[in-house]
Design a protein around this nucleic acid. Structure first.
Lengths: 338, 338
DNA sequence: CTGAAAGCGCTTACAG
DNA sequence: CTGAAAGCGCTTACAG
């Protein structure tokens, strides 16, 4: 496959590569190139099936029209759908995207960040793992265009798109309280992510504002690395407390999926034995043994806004002085599980 | 963010860029550069936090260490997990990847293919939509490295990785027959994809080899564009045939998910009212009202093999004369739905 | 209206 | 052992 370049077209036509470049880029008018010549160039390009080499262009212009995205795992339904939204919006705005899954591992994300920077991406959308603070600080200091998504670091001034996790958690907990549930458990992970922290705080605040005298006794934090067995064990523990739980909130779809598998296996009947609410809203919750009430995040808006915010930043020549912090609302979808 | 180049290092050290390039690429020994100089270069690179510009390298060498992937939709659990496997294996082999979702639209995939080619990807992994035959033929004619995945075009000699869809479908149908089900429906889409075709053939062959005298009367093909309502309607139709269906096979997880939602809504009890088997095995099938028996594809192996096969092709300088056609086995996972 | 020249940041013969 | 030069395929002042 011999690739045809701008020079080939120029040679065939006996004109300069400059002219070909100008004509091809629609700058014919601007540079007052004769229409007739312009047309000849376009025709020849079509005839030779000319495909511009975008990396050569990128090297010259310093813009690659490529975005880098780092999320925890593109196979996870939450991030997969988010990535899809990002892809679609990016395509609309003329960007392609390189996706990376960090597995919430700061070492991996650091390697991926370096790779993306070396690939000369124009900007980054990142869901930063615990411990990646310096990586983000580096971007901030360098004035490199980036947008954080799903989480942020309170001590680093960044553009970010998140949802109001505190409120979502607070409302869901209050909903359960209003339904008469007395012993409401909360299952989360022991991480320093603000996202998870805020979800826990929302739950605890609702509990402490209520007449339920349970404090944080039904709050369980799973270790950072956990699997289905750990989740099952945690649920068993909550069931064996004096006055076992009558409702349980999962702080993410990942935990929720594992938790529901355990619950089906124990088995417990939902909502008779236990009421369930989970963060996120993967397809599975709709066809679950009992459809699960869910705190759905506005994935489409999150994806779109993050790309828009990023591209806006890329386009701006001077470093932006003020960062934009977008906090979106979640939607509480009540199904039969409570 | 001033980027530091090989020339900056050379200037600082008073040596030539050639030397720096050689040292940085570990060719010091090969070119008998003094160890001492090599070390100085490496130290200076570290000190200046030098990041090689991979697109400049790509322009010069003709290799970008980038793979292009086109699937139907990265948010679809099947393709999302497949992409994740591809990402991981590609990273291991030193490649980054640009993912595109074609939505099974040949016009979109054509645009994406052009974009990827213009981006100088070293190779492509494609799940080609109906009607994209010429796009694939073009790659084949050009001798461009590519691997098809999940489907292929019988009349184009390509490398591909698929599963044995006929056998999977044949076995699953026979399993239902052996369990005593008499009126086994099959819900698929009216597409010309071999994958879907083979699944249908497997079903029909099993039915026709049996004593069940149903022929293709319980085979329903949905229109190319279908939504939950169409699926629901199709199931209602099958239930209203004289001697309604007692078992139903879904030919993909996408249809399965919509079908199960309809079944929960009608409502039908699984497996009492109807037994269910579905192709693919998303998480949701495990926590479904009744866990669903599934035909699981070896996603990890598919992803890994496709990358390996592709990279092997890229590395080979001469065009490969023989293509490799990999047909993997599926795993039939029996759960409570039948 | 059009072209020659420089340069983006690399690598790779080639020469000495 | 090391450097000068060319070139990958573009774009962009600059000159005429």
């Amino acid at each position: 496959m011999k690739k045809v370049s701008i020079n080939d077209i120029a040679a065939r036509l006996g004109v300069s590569p400059t002219l070909v470049s100008l004509a091809l880029n629609g700058k014919g008018k601007e540079y007052r190139i004769r229409d007739e010549i312009c047309k000849k160039v376009l025709d020849m390009a079509a005839e030779l099936n000319y495909q511009p080499n975008t990396i050569a262009k990128g090297l010259r212009t310093g813009k690659t029209q490529t975005l880098g995205v780092i999320v925890a795992d593109i196979a996870n339904p939450f991030f997969g759908r988010l990535c899809r939204e990002i892809e679609t919006e990016a395509e609309l705005m003329g960007y392609k995207v390189i996706f990376c899954s960090s597995d919430e591992d700061a070492t991996r994300s650091k390697r991926q960040l370096e790779m993306l920077l070396q690939s000369q991406v124009d900007g980054l959308i990142i869901s930063p793992p615990v411990g990646s603070n310096e990586q983000i600080q580096f971007l901030a200091d360098a004035g490199f265009p980036y947008v954080l998504i799903d989480r942020y670091f309170p001590d680093i001034d960044s553009n970010f798109i998140i949802v109001d996790n505190f409120e979502a958690s607070f409302n869901a907990t209050n909903f359960l309280i209003s339904k008469g549930y007395k012993r409401i458990g909360f299952l989360t992970i022991n991480e320093d992510l603000v996202t998870m922290h805020n979800r826990t705080e929302g739950y605890l605040t609702a509990i402490n504002n209520s007449d339920l005298k349970i404090g944080d006794t039904l709050l369980t934090k799973l270790p950072f690395s956990h699997d289905g067995k750990d989740v099952r064990q945690a649920i068993m523990d909550l069931l064996q407390r004096e006055g076992k739980i009558d409702a349980l909130i999962f702080s993410s779809s990942k935990i929720g999926l594992m938790g529901l598998e355990a619950i089906a296996d124990i088995p417990l009947k939902v909502p008779q034995d236990i009421a369930i609410v989970s963060f996120d809203d993967p397809d599975s919750f709709k066809i679950c043994f009992t459809p699960i009430s869910a705190i759905a995040q506005p994935l489409s808006e999150m994806g779109k806004r993050s790309v828009q915010l990023l591209v806006q930043q890329i386009k701006k020549r001077k470093k932006t002085e003020t960062t934009e912090k977008v906090v979106l609302k979640t939607e509480f979808i009540v199904r039969k599980s409570c």
